[in-house]
Simulated scan of single mutants.
Amino acid sequence: MVKMLTEGNPKVAIIGPSKSESVAMAGQIAPVFHTVHVNQADNLLNPLRIKMMKHYGWSRVATLAYQDEYNVPQFNVRIIMGAFHADTALPVFCEAYKQGMYGPSYVWILSGTTLHPGWIEATEDCTLEQMQTALYGHFALHNLDVGYSNETTILGKSAAEEMASLRVLDSSTPYVQSRYTPYVVDTAWALALGLNNSLKYLDEKGLSLSRYKYSEDFNQAIVNGIKETSFVGVSELHHGPIKKANDPHVIQKITPDRSGKEIRQYKNIKC
């Protein structure tokens, strides 16, 4: 990333990456160059987490996030919210199994947006059956990736129509869509509209995007411009860079066993 930022013309902004570990690194590098870093944040699920706490009357929960090393401490709580990817979740739940942190006395709430289908498998230290036991009955929280309404987006189509158009374009390329595609589309629009909005702030300082360079003045003008954006996007999260309070989510209660997994899904939950 440093090489990309230092070679060639100055980079106005960075979009992504999607993995939390890489995001953390990008978030540390971008400010050094006074360049804008735009990314889809997992904390957009926080309103749903809070709503669950209020609904069940939980006053105390623990949060567990992956950094450089994983650990499952014996919290003095029974409700644990985890924010990590599947490759990290596996050793975490293996350790949870060993410490007996599972069953009806514990509630595990995961970020389903970071877990791929079929991610539950055996590890070096735990069998598949042990992993399924530890994960039995956990909750997975999701954002609805694509807008479910027929509202016209900034692209002049409904979200479903736009995604169908993109699939047609993809069919002539070696690339395929992922669940991040709606977010990428909307993030690009948020940045483009933000750059347009930034022109007035740049003009106040006698600056122009055509003469862009790494500086705090350019950075602040672009950030201010992005904060002003508001639009109906393809994803339900990007009506603007700041999530609307009533964006819908999905809660899944997952009970995996030897025969697969039973999923109880609750859609379109407003927060």
Rank of each mutant, 00 (worst) to 15 (best):
Ala41Trp: 11
Ala41His: 13
Ala41Asn: 15
Ala41Asp: 07
Asp42Gln: 04
Asp42Phe: 09
Asp42Leu: 02
Asn43Phe: 06
Asn46Pro: 01
Asn46Thr: 11
Asn46Gln: 12
Leu48Lys: 06
Arg49Gly: 02
Arg49Ala: 05
Ile50Arg: 15
Ile50Gln: 14
Lys51Arg: 09
Met53Cys: 08
Lys54Phe: 02
Tyr56Leu: 02
Tyr56Asp: 04
Gly57Ala: 04
Trp58Pro: 07
Ser59Ala: 01
Ser59Asp: 06
Val61Leu: 05
Ala62Lys: 08
Leu64Thr: 01
Ala65Gln: 06
Tyr66Ser: 09
Asp68Thr: 08
Tyr70Asp: 07
Asn71Ile: 12
Val72His: 00
Pro73Asn: 03
Pro73Leu: 01
Gln74Phe: 14
Gln74Cys: 15
Phe75Ile: 02
Val77Glu: 12
Arg78Phe: 01
Ile80Val: 07
Met81Leu: 10
Gly82Asn: 04
Gly82Ala: 04
Ala83Asp: 05
Phe84Ile: 01
Phe84Ser: 00
Ala86Val: 04
Ala86Phe: 07
Asp87Glu: 08
Thr88Asp: 11
Thr88Cys: 12
Thr88Pro: 08
Thr88Gln: 13
Thr88Glu: 05
Thr88His: 12
Ala89Val: 02
Ala89Ser: 02
Leu90Cys: 05
Pro91Asn: 08
Val92Thr: 05
Val92Phe: 01
Val92Asn: 03
Val92Glu: 05
Val92Arg: 01
Ala96Gly: 07
Ala96Asp: 06
Lys98His: 06
Met101Leu: 10
Met101Arg: 00
Tyr102Thr: 09
Tyr102Ala: 03
Pro104Cys: 10
Ser105Gln: 13
Tyr106Asp: 04
Tyr106Val: 00
Val107Glu: 05
Trp108Leu: 06
Trp108Asp: 00
Ile109Lys: 02
Leu110Ala: 01
Ser111Phe: 10
Gly112Tyr: 05
Thr114Phe: 10
Thr114Ala: 01
His116Arg: 14
His116Glu: 13
His116Leu: 13
Gly118Trp: 01
Trp119His: 12
Trp119Thr: 14
Glu121Ile: 14
Ala122Arg: 07
Thr123Tyr: 12
Thr123Met: 14
Glu124Thr: 15
Glu124Val: 15
Glu124Asn: 15
Thr127Leu: 05
Leu128Gly: 10
Leu128Thr: 05
Glu129Val: 13
Glu129Trp: 01
Gln130Val: 06
Met131Ala: 05
Gln132Phe: 11
Thr133Met: 02
Ala134Glu: 09
Tyr136His: 15
Tyr136Ile: 14
Gly137Asn: 15
Gly137Gln: 11
Gly137Tyr: 11
His138Ser: 15
Leu141Phe: 13
His142Leu: 14
His142Glu: 06
Leu144Arg: 14
Leu144Tyr: 14
Asp145Gly: 11
Asp145His: 15
Val146Met: 10
Tyr148Pro: 08
Tyr148Gln: 12
Ser149Arg: 07
Ser149Gln: 09
Asn150Ala: 14
Asn150Asp: 09
Glu151Lys: 15
Thr152Lys: 14
Gly156Met: 03
Gly156Trp: 03
Lys157Arg: 08
Ser158Met: 07
Ala160Ser: 13
Glu162Tyr: 03
Ala164Pro: 06
Ser165Asp: 13
Arg167Ile: 11
Arg167Lys: 11
Arg167Val: 03
Val168Gln: 11
Val168Pro: 06
Val168Leu: 10
Leu169Ala: 13
Asp170Lys: 03
Ser171Ala: 00
Ser172Ala: 03
Ser172Glu: 06
Pro174Ser: 06
Tyr175Ala: 07
